[in-house]
Nucleic acid binder design. Structure first.
Lengths: 267, 267
DNA sequence: CAGTGGTCTAGACCACCTA
DNA sequence: AGGTGGTCTAGACCACTGC
């Protein structure tokens, strides 16, 4: 019935940018137009096409140049602003935040240890320490909405920043969720991929508790250093789309090496 | 030239809701339509009009009922989803997240101690301990982009959750930003109001470093408890719209009383 | 007063789920 | 097949800023 939006008659298409027309891009790239715009702008900020502290082109200019609607430009800009990378001033303009680099972690990605390590400028790697099946403790059963002493898969892993051990991560997952042979599990994968591959589940949201603690002897054998020093303990609960508890995690985080820093911005 | 959008002919206006027409509401309420929708939905979730775990009305139904466009409904829903209060499933529907209450802090509000205490279900109050002027240390001068040993205003305050002392907060602000008499400063106000009232500045963004530490003797005299226990240290830098550093803060956070928990959700 | 970001509308098409 | 959320467009009006 309805025809696809007519495009291609823009004047100023002055960049290398290639955006697909209409909603076709969902097929071609698997990326939304807004995300493509976001990436383009992010790159321009990083390579200082838009230099730190300077004023960026206006929304209308960007929408003309990139051949997308202003609304689309705005969703991309909103994401950048939420992460503190740009500052927007009504009646004035949009400015590149020169302090963007000061932050290691963006809004609430506390559960994604790989991203956290990357955000600190290190190369992350994961060492798979152990995996076992054991009955759930009472607390675990409650938090995971299981019957008492139902079977769990307990995974222990060590995260490295470059060559240095920085996070000791313990995870427990209900055995009942497993969809592939127990023996096939590769514990050195990203937690998101582990859930995808062996449990056929997607992580929908996470609740992270941040606590301080003394490191203790056991964790110290992995992370080194003084056995009475204070560390951060990130206690994570992961949930699936259907609100099903997927896993619990306890991450011992050595904040003498890694910074945990967050940006918050307001509109 | 153009006429205000015609409204008022909706059929299903079945609720108590009163929304202003067009953009007039900006004058009347100081709230955007999207925020009003957000508040309405939030209230319905809290009072269990939409009960935990149940499916909410579709976007179209809400937009019909409330008399706003679907886009507006979507921005409100997006905010709720980002805070983990609802779960959205394409091709299915929007569900109330029964685990919403498990979180005390929402995305990155780490700098707002009053909100943090409220999020834990306590009544917050602020006790003003001391205020003084002193030259900046080298580190402080650097972080605040000042000349070495320029004058600072140093503020020390103690935050209570109900009757219990939970956070010791030290803040330093460049004296040069002060716009009102030094003597008039009321240190028991919310930090946002202090900036508004005495410095004529608005906080645009914050960068928070989360570290663990041993509490030490001094803080212990305020917060009580064992003097060798681990606590959280939130180091905050506040910036204004023009990217000007406004203040530094060091918040000693007793996590044996207060939880610091964050929700993260994905679309 | 012109230009910028902020908000809202109305309508279109898509991908996905459930039945 | 029908409905739901996900994305995008085009156009309008507002509030604020700086000249």
């Amino acid at each position: 019935m309805k025809v696809l939006v007519e495009k291609g008659t823009k004047k100023k298409r002055q960049t290398i940018v290639i955006l697909q027309v209409g909603s076709l891009m969902n097929f071609v790239q698997g990326k939304t137009v807004a995300n493509q715009v976001d990436e383009i702008l992010l790159e321009r900020i990083r390579d200082e096409t838009y230099s730190p502290g300077s004023r960026m082109p206006s929304e209308s200019e960007l929408s003309d140049e990139l051949g997308v609607s202003r609304a689309t430009v705005r969703t991309a800009l909103a994401k950048l602003a939420a992460n503190g990378l740009i500052l927007r001033k009504q009646g004035d303009g949009t400015y590149v935040n020169a302090r963007a680099r000061d932050a290691s972690a963006f809004l609430g990605n506390l559960w994604d240890l790989v991203e956290l390590i990357e955000g600190n400028g290190f190369k992350p790697s994961i060492r798979f320490l152990s995996i076992e099946r054991r009955p759930a403790t009472e607390k675990e059963a409650f938090a995971l909405a299981l019957e008492p002493s139902e079977d769990l898969i307990a995974l222990r892993r060590l995260f490295y920043a470059d060559q240095q051990a920085v996070i000791l991560a313990d995870n427990v997952i209900p055995s009942s969720l497993l969809r592939e042979p127990f023996e096939s599990i590769d514990g050195s994968l990203h937690i998101r991929d582990i859930f995808q591959k062996y449990f056929h589940q997607k992580i929908a949201f996470a609740i992270t508790d941040i606590r301080s603690a003394v490191i203790g002897e056991e964790a110290c054998t992995y992370l080194g250093g003084e056995s009475d020093r204070a560390i951060l303990k990130l206690q994570v609960a992961l949930y699936g789309k259907n609100n099903l508890p997927l896993a619990l995690g306890t991450n011992i985080f050595d904040d003498s090496v890694l910074r945990l820093s967050l940006v918050q911005a307001w509109s």
